[in-house]
């Protein structure tokens, strides 16, 4: 799809979510994908995003991510909610406890607490089908039960653009729906769009001393790739020819087989 087509489809999805749910929010890691989703939301609503933006803070993020977050939140006038699992953080949970445990506690549970507190019935997320096999199986509107579980064996019928939004009483029962506005985008599309639209990105994506981050997560579990791409143009060029997977530098996907599926079944992004 061309960028225009991708953008149209995403805006359609965002507006559908806003019309169908009572209390939506968008998740923002400050990475390239979720920043693109914020840019699309700004377009969909003519500048002002009419719902909160949630940032899950594990305490292990890169310093540059926090700086970037606060700058953009200010520039774009975001209604920013910072979600932290204080209890786990105080107990000292970290990657040393195992990546599965750490991601579940500091990310999934932090998000769960935030959702319960604010009663959100829909969450916009910037996952893409081409990132990971398990994400390729997602629906655009994807329900989660009160325990956050993803029933991937019985996903809704989702034909044409008729997404299943069961909104009534969702926030009361603790069920929510994940909404995926850029599910149909590829990594290269995101960068081409960032370039076209002049979307701000975290400086960690650009190469320094022959290395750059291709996917951003928590500092201890994210490693850079070898690259000399110092500009968006150079990143686009690199992606056209690379044979390395995007999440190659993300440790939590790889600890063991089907790790990502297990994380996601429990409500991971």
């Amino acid at each position: 799809m061309g960028l225009k087509e991708l953008e149209n489809k995403s805006i359609y999805i965002i507006r559908e979510a806003y019309a169908e749910f009572e209390n939506p929010a968008v998740l923002w890691s400050t990475g390239k994908d979720s920043t693109t989703v914020l840019a699309l939301c700004r377009k969909a609503f003519f500048g002002k995003i009419p719902f909160p933006v949630i940032h899950i803070d594990t305490g292990y993020k890169f310093k540059q991510m926090y700086e970037f977050r606060d700058r953009i939140a200010d520039e774009w006038g975001l209604d920013l909610i910072i979600a932290r699992n204080e209890e786990a953080m105080n107990a000292g949970v970290g990657p040393g406890d195992g990546k599965f445990e750490c991601c579940t506690k500091l990310k999934t549970e932090a998000l769960m607490q935030c959702l319960n507190k604010h009663g959100f019935d829909a969450l916009l997320l910037a996952i893409r089908r081409d990132e990971h096999g398990i994400r390729a199986k997602e629906r655009v509107f994807s329900p989660r039960d009160e325990e956050f579980r993803w029933n991937y064996r019985d996903q809704p019928l989702e034909m044409w653009d008729q997404y299943q939004a069961q909104s009534e009483g969702q926030s009361e029962t603790g069920i929510h729906t994940r909404v995926h506005p850029i599910l149909h985008w590829r990594e290269l599309d995101v960068w081409e769009y960032i370039k076209q639209e002049n979307i701000p990105v975290n400086p960690l994506y650009f190469a320094r001393d022959g290395k750059r981050y291709r996917s951003l997560g928590c500092e201890p579990c994210t490693s850079p790739i070898d690259s000399n791409a110092k500009t968006i143009d150079e990143i686009v060029e690199e992606l056209r020819t690379t044979k390395i997977a995007e999440r190659a530098g993300r440790a939590q996907d790889k600890e063991k087989a089907f790790m990502m599926q297990k994380l996601r079944a429990l409500g991971y992004m």
Binding site: R129, D130, G133, A136, K137, Y152, R153, H184, R186
Partner: peptide
């Protein structure tokens, strides 16, 4: 195969 998948 249980669920549909789209690849580019």
């Amino acid at each position: 195969t249980i669920d549909t998948v789209s690849l580019m």
